[in-house]
Design a protein around this nucleic acid. Sequence first.
DNA 1: ATCCTCCCCTAC
DNA 2: TAAGGTAGGGGAGGAT
Length: 1148
Amino acid sequence: MTRSTNSGGSSKRSGPSSSLHGSAGSGNKRRKTKSSGGGNQQTLGMAWGASSSSACRSSFRSSPFSDFGSYMSEKNRKLQEQFCAEATCSSNGQLSLNALFKGVSIFVDGLTVPSCQELRVYMLKYGGRLENYFSRHRVTHIICSNLPSSKIKNIRSFSAGLPVVKPNWIVDCIACNKLLSWVPYQLDQLSDNQPRMSNFFGLQGGLISEEPSSGKIDALPENDHSFSKCPIPKDLKLPVASRGTESRGHGAWACGEEENVDSLEDKGDLKGKAVEIAEEDSISKQTEEGGCVPQEFGDGSDNSSNAANCYTGYPGRAELIDRDTEKNSSLMGSINGSFTKPSLSTVNHCPKQSPRTSTCSDDTERSSKGHSSLGDPNFVENFFKYSRLHFIGTWRSRYRKRFSSISCRNEGVSVLQARDDDGKNIIIHIDMDCFFVSVVIRNFPELQDKPVAICHSDNPGGTAEISSANYPARDYGIKAGMFVRDAKALCPHLVIFPYNFEAYEEVADSFYDILHKHCNKVQAVSCDEAFLDMTDSSVEDPELLASLIRREIFETTGCTASAGIARNMLMARLATRNAKPNGQFHITLEMVDEYLRELPVKALPGIGYVLEDRLRQRDILTCGQLRDRSKEFLQREFGLKTGEMLWSYSRGMSTRMVGTLNESKSVGAEVNWGVRFRDSKDSKQFLSNLCKEVSSRLQGCGLQGRKFTLKIKKKRKDADEPVKYMGCGDCENLSHTTTVPTATDEVDVITRIAIQLFGSFNLDVKDIRGIGLQVSKFENADASRQARGKATIRSWLTSDSATGETSNISHHIVDRVGKGSKMQNMKEPSNELHSGSTSAASLSRGKLVGLSIDQRGSKDSCTGRGDYLDSCSHSAASNLERMEVEREGVNVLTCEAAAHISASMKTDLMPLSLSQIDSLVLQQLPEEVRKSIIQMLPAHRDQSMPAATPSNPAQNGQLQSTNQSFTNNQKSALEEDLWTGSPPLWVDKFKMRNCWVLNTFADMYGQSEETSALSRVLRHLISDISCLDENVSDWDEAILDISKLLKQYIRLKVELDIEEMFICFRLLKRLGLKSKLFQQIEKVVYPFLQASVAEHYGVVTWTVLQESNLTGRKQVWWVKLLIHKSQIYFMENIFDDLKRQCRLCKIV
DNA sequence: ATCCTCCCCTAC
DNA sequence: TAAGGTAGGGGAGGAT
């Protein structure tokens, strides 16, 4: 069952607040509240609210910036002045400047190369202008690099004849030092819609000739005043209709009466009847006949008015396209009382009806694909751009960045006020009224008392969700989360505006500017809601202050806010319920009991539908009833914390303090709309895009995480197609988590992790309806990066020392051991150790020493590396039978190697089951080889592998089709064993496994003389070296032999072969016991490693690890990694180098 | 006891 | 057509 998302704007308290005001009937609640002063609390603030109900609006109108977007107008004017000032400076400073672009005024749409910022500089330098917001009156050229299909129509609509040109035009003009014709530079995608050349060259043709500025695009007169100085655009001085081009006023879809809406649903129940197609068809016809007729103050040049056209995102995501003309269109509609006139309605239906026209068919095809993950490579990006919930959800992080300095200032004081409400705390809660609607309609006073809502679509039969509804609309029962078709059914003349995220962002900024100005303890709740702690403020009358703040908010933003005042955050918030809309309410200490007695429990923050329901089942409907239950009862029934919360909230008690936003603990991205996959290629592509998004968000916050959670929404077996268009419907929610030792924000790493997690779900991708990836366990990005930069094997391999004679690895270890400081460090893995390793790093020319132990060292912040080190120290302490110095040396090497592994093979540092490993390994192989292996696997498992370590190719979707999967029992036995097996078992398993791998290949190619020889070689190497005892002299001899062999090899080729690696492997296996041999061995081994790839290191490190006696999960974890790495290496090389191996066989 | 995973619930 | 996200917190149950 799909839950209705009761979110967005200020409609979030729709339930309780509407009931609160329900007694007012369908009359104007605003008037009622204002005049009544909010009931018995006739506060000063309320008095202001009451007296200003009419006065405020009239004063709004008559103030210097009274009408449309005065605030925004002012801002735009400033922007323009700023531009002019910069241009003046610029031209003074640089002699080479000329007026190349004089008369050219560009508007940059979307991402361009050069960037908008660069283009701005060019325009500054060469006498042109860059408009921040689109205005047909001022803009002469739209600059655009590329258009997603969804935008093509948009551009077609709003460009209205202006040339849409690639940014190269500007660059080339500068290069040629003359104003070139833009025609060759027009955007291909739009070329069929570009203004005809004759229109421009002949300065004639309907649209263009009516637009003085745009009619002179390529031949602007030198004396065009509009560009010769810094004019405040004429339209700023115009009355209502054309003022405030920057006001973001987007056109409403003035709504026609829809007679055919016959499928109504219960509120909140999204499982209604299907949309009536026939109804849409009738509208479609209507539109095609009479629609699409441009309507804009009669000049008939604006035919745009759909959501995509209007909405352009919010800062950092998309660019603004402002269309003052469009606003005028809507305004005209409202002035003329045209809400019910089909003619206007058809204009607004045009975009969605027009696809059926021939000219748009291609676009339609593409844009329709764009509604799901199918066929739109940019689906994820586009989805977020247009998602209201994404806007709401990500607002905090934007706020965090924007007001970080102020937040810091708060942090100090928030600690001080840890006192309960016995003190004299004064908390003010401020919440904007129906925020999304208010922002959009503040420029339309005529709409203030009309029902207005915000929605992506005004399709009266559609399943777009209402995000915010103003109070008149709520009178009709319209609520956030409701389908637009239901809203239209309740109120056919409902005016629907599209989103304008940029405007919300700007208003929110102003809102917080004001709050911070009045109070230094501000806690942001959302873009339209905050708490102020006035306890330590010198302000005597909080009500007066609240009213001042509210008034300032209104004067600055044109939007009203309500305020609740109380002794703690809980009560202040509840007070705001009573204050809304546009009022304020003070709950004094004495009132608390009475206030809560009849308050429905649902009104308490933290009680949602589920908890409300559970309470109702226990006959608890009001806070008074809640208060009758003991804390023990509540804790028993609802859990410790929840019970405690219920108990204290029902008494109006809250210990929450007004504080700053805490550091974020997780960052993620998810998409549960429009997710449809045909095959695993689709899903991988989608996942990859999602990872890009997550990665960029992490980087944007400067965070790197170690814990990754992949969430999947899987269609339930018996679930029907969702009622909501492209919705996820009835789904199972699944999630898998993995933790890696090295924090990361890198897209490649994250993608590989995500793909592995994804594989572990083992799903039919056709059932997937939503995917999300969340990252947590953050470490400081800079520190991680720094550590990793030092530690990368790449840096070591590419360093001078790496190509020089030998590494100093043994020297530095000996050096460190000799210092005798290591034991202490080992016992106490903390900062000291880190500094120890740093000094070690400086001792060695080899970059191998860039040990990246977590600097913090405390238990809580212990990273994989820290834990790892801990284990090392433990093993050092518990293995006293070995020479401590040697032991220590091993641990140092082990840690370093581990750090390097973690740095150079980042993505593989995650728990892998053998089945996953098999899948991964197999994936890397050529198809025919893979098939033959898959066929072999079960048989070989039985013969050559321990029963507890079967391979499970079924884990991988691709392999599943072979029907060679293992049973679930086998799988779980394996998994269990992998995770719980003790270390010694692991070592054995690894040995067995390698034997198994070798046997597998030997047997596979057993018919071939070549491969059986290979098999013999490998066996020989293993047994030969393994037979050596611990006697140093034996080893010396062996090393001599082997080094001869290796030297011989190295003369023949650059890279190590499987045997060579095996030799290194076995050699280094002995390192743990024979650290005195370091010097000898390194001469042999490290040149190979230098010339080799990271995989070798995996094997080498595994060997060292094996000797370190790691215990518990850590070892399992590392061993798994190493198995993975080494096996991939084995497999790949065995196949790739099969023939080369034959040569080696002869040698042996 | 404490931690972890896999959920679910909630607010915005 | 339509853009059902984000993040924190808590509970159950299992591992250590």
